[in-house]
């Protein structure tokens, strides 16, 4: 399942800087929402809950990131998977497995596979979302509180969606829902945002739910318990040795 923009929302939210623009420039708005600033660092503790038609899972993870090219995520709970970690450096992804004390590099053929069993793929983690570059934007509608923005992929853009629709809260400039459609206009996935908090001068939704519409019993919900920006961390921190630390 394609979830490029989800990861960038997830990570981008960690990286948002203070916005200054007020005028309704759609591209700018989306860029804010999906913003990938380099040089921004963050630390977070999140809870990810995944439901599929066969099982349910709840994970608690620590994450440290630097820009969009470096992150290190480590599972804290449940105890069975404590210590499992993922390291991304630019386009490469590694996993650490404490039970066997080994590091595995994720090959390109597995990039379409899901990350930690969720509805997020390895691909999503690796590819930088260039939503503001790959799409053209138009305002579909407006209410007192919300904007509805239609994003159509540019003819040559390497995206699988037919179109994406953002529902954005005007006041705090945060997304409420994002709908993903295929080319026939069928809604394939919806992401919902909630629990907006102010962190480091910026409004950030702390709850994000991914819903694949053709499998209604399935979902992935990311809940940020802790989140802070501007954490002092260097590129050298994102190394295989650190990956192996328990």
């Amino acid at each position: 399942m394609q979830l490029r923009s989800l990861s960038t929302i997830a990570l981008g939210l960690i990286l948002l800087s203070a916005s200054s623009a007020f005028a309704l420039d759609l591209r700018e708005l989306i860029r804010e929402i999906e913003d990938q600033h380099t040089g921004r660092s963050s630390r977070a503790v999140m809870n990810m809950q995944v439901e599929t038609s066969h099982w349910e899972r709840s994970l608690v993870m620590n994450a440290v990131s630097l820009g969009r090219d470096h992150f290190l995520i480590r599972i804290q709970e449940p105890p069975k998977e404590k210590g499992v970690a993922t390291l991304k450096v630019e386009q490469e992804v590694w996993n650490y497995l404490p039970k066997v004390d080994r590091v595995i590099k994720v090959p390109p053929s597995m990039m379409g596979g899901s990350w930690m069993g969720s509805h997020i793929t390895n691909n999503d983690l690796v590819k930088a979302a260039k939503i503001d570059q790959d799409y053209d934007f138009a305002l579909l509608g407006e209410t007192d509180t919300t904007w509805r923005i239609n994003c159509t992929p540019k003819p040559e853009a390497a995206v699988v969606w037919g179109r994406i629709v953002y529902l954005v809260e005007k006041a705090r400039r945060v997304p409420l829902t994002v709908d993903y459609f295929d080319e026939d206009g069928i809604k394939v996935r919806t992401i919902t945002f909630d629990e907006v908090k102010e962190i480091d001068g910026r409004q950030v939704p702390m709850l994000m739910a991914v819903q694949p519409l053709e499998k209604p019993q399935e979902s992935t919900v990311m809940h940020y318990r802790e989140l802070e920006f501007g954490v002092p961390v260097e590129e050298s921190f994102f190394s295989l040795r650190n990956l192996r630390q328990r």
Binding site: V50, T52, L97, K99, I104, G117
Partner: peptide, 16 residues
């Protein structure tokens, strides 16, 4: 060698 897969309960199945 390390084998990695997704177990039936969704967790990360791995072993040597």
């Amino acid at each position: 060698l390390v084998f990695l897969t997704q177990a039936a309960d969704g967790s990360i199945g791995n072993d040597l």
